[in-house]
């Protein structure tokens, strides 16, 4: 099993519903976020292209945060989802420094926190909160090992990119272009 998420940048309008849904679902402290919107304008004037991306932890297959964690608090569960165990986390910050996506933060309670792919919902057969609420239906979540999952089909039929693949972390958040 390999959980992954695809973000359709052609459909995303950057409304931040995913951000709000995540904050409510996961009780994210005010002033922090586990997912966020990036608005990128790229090109040579006047040939400019606007792209919205809903970003979060990439649940890397080669996760540097898990490797550098001194206590094993950062760990990998079913489907390659990277989680933090608050009761094992000492709040040293090594994983935060190790993440090229800066997807982690220190929770005000002291431990490190990040996107969980809403594994508590996925285990019940539901979709992650961000995917569930997206008004343009631009987020797809599923199992890459299942050729008929939504996310597998999107990656088969569409062009896509990952963010900074050159960092060597094998990210599992795909952006359909």
């Amino acid at each position: 099993m390999r959980y992954a998420m695809a973000v359709d940048t052609k459909k995303c309008v950057g409304c931040s519903d995913c951000v709000v849904a995540c904050q409510l679902e996961n009780n994210v402290p005010i002033g922090y976020c586990r997912d966020w919107i990036v608005e990128s304008t790229a090109g040579t004037y006047p040939e400019l292209e606007l792209e919205f991306r809903s970003e979060r932890c990439n649940h890397c297959a080669n996760a540097p945060c898990v490797r550098c964690c001194p206590t094993g608090a950062s760990h990998i569960v079913e489907g390659g989802v990277v989680l933090v165990d608050p009761d094992a986390c000492i709040g040293c910050g090594a994983c935060i420094a190790s993440c090229p996506y800066d997807a982690r933060y220190t929770h005000p309670d002291g431990y490190v926190d990040k996107c969980t792919f809403c594994i508590h919902r996925v285990r019940k057969g539901q979709k992650p909160a961000c995917v569930e609420v997206c008004p343009t239906k631009c987020l797809y979540f599923g199992d890459l090992d299942d050729p008929n999952s939504e996310v597998s089909i999107m990656l088969k039929t569409r062009d896509y990119k990952t963010l900074i693949p050159e960092a060597g972390t094998d990210p599992q958040l795909y952006f359909l272009t």
């Binding site: 931040s16 951000v19 002033g31 922090y32 976020c33 966020w36 919107i37 990036v38 608005e39 990128s40 304008t41 790229a42 090109g43 040579t44 970003e55 910050g93 935060i96 420094a97 800066d102 982690r104 933060y105 220190t106």
Partner: peptide
């Protein structure tokens, strides 16, 4: 060719510059 990035993320001690 240029790219202008606006991020909605502002996590303390991570943004705009890492200061962990």
């Amino acid at each position: 060719k240029e790219e202008l990035i606006i991020s909605g993320r502002m996590n303390p001690r991570v943004d705009p510059n890492l200061s962990i």
